[in-house]
Amino acid sequence: MHLIEVKDLEKTYYIDSVQTPALRGVSFKIKEGEFVAIVGPSGSGKSTLLHVLGFLDRHTAGEYHFDGKTINDYSEEEIARVRNKEMGFIFQTFNLLPRTTVLENVKLPLLYSGVKESLWEKKARQVIDSVGLSHRLHHESSQLSGGEIQRVAIARALVNNPRIIFADEPTGNLDSKSGKVIMELIQKLNNDGHTVILITHETYTAKHAERLIRLSDGAIKEDAPVDHRLVAADHFTK
């Protein structure tokens, strides 16, 4: 069974009664454990697709099955639970809580998880350690570099051990050196068994994935395995 299955997926924005189609009938399947890069120029609909897949937004037509169940069958509460337990998000703009420590930021998904409070600290420290930021536990985001902030965001995405990670231009706001570190980490997550869907407009970044879906003007132009996949040096495996 596929983890994600979309068929003729459409998304149209209505702004002041003006229709703006962002996705015009997209179909594909993603197996558990895959690493898929969705690429395309600005305005191609790749972010919209990620938001729909990540339960952050609703599609307007077509079908979307997550874990064998169509999204329309999920209640409001279930959607929140899936976002909490099954999915992890990494954003281009990081989205850490301001004036909050690394540890507290990483704990955030645990607050809504139903996990026993006594385990929070241990789980958060574990994932912070896995992104190499143990020495930054009590620092606030204003005291961290961009690369470090994105690693905190990755730790936060991982803390509930989700099945799938959505990464929306995770290196977009970083210098190339920090970007490389982030891509190593993401590749490692995939190696550890997490399904990864990566959105990017950079060919170099996309080459870390094993499959590439190219979008243009809201439709799929290409869906193929990545040639000459880049395998990043693994700094984080101990």
């Binding site: 990540g54 952050l56 409001e76 509460e77 929140a80 639970r81 976002r83 909490n84 337990k85 998000f89 989205n95 809580l97 955030l108 998904p109 607050l111 809504y112 998880s113 936060r156 509930n160």
Partner: peptide, 16 residues
Amino acid sequence: TKEIGLRKAVGATNKD
């Protein structure tokens, strides 16, 4: 607003 969006993205319900 952004904080609310983030909290929802990581699993907060409307009730939360």
